[in-house]
Amino acid sequence: MMLASSLDSIGIGDAAVVALLGYGVVFFGLILLMIVVTIMGKIFIAKDKKAAEKAAVAKTAVSAIPTAAPAAPAAAPAVAPGSAGQLKLHDVEPKTAAMLMAIVADKMGKPLNELRFISIKEVK
């Protein structure tokens, strides 16, 4: 800021110095940021790796426990009550219908398997 008054009408040599210095400062600032972001990334990668290792150890420990009876089959994923039923399409391509259903589910914030679509009709 103290340079401002003297640099209002600067010569070509000074302008070249300002340009080079400016380009250097941009690089310096972004390199500094790159170092910080890289370090931050390494910390997070190491943390994720540690968490994954812990999970793997826990899993191994659980599988090592002897069991008297064969393990029960894994429970099937919960299914939404009711049947999805038959969807009737009127002048709508199945691809478009799938897209519409996905959009509706997304907008409502509900899983698609909890919604029931009865028919989709193109309004002309």
Binding site: F27, G29, L30, I31, M34, V37, T38
Partner: peptide
């Protein structure tokens, strides 16, 4: 940008 911090150098260039 976070997944590839080197891209900051291209932003500077």
């Amino acid at each position: 940008l976070l997944s590839n911090p080197k891209s900051l150098l291209l932003g500077a260039a």
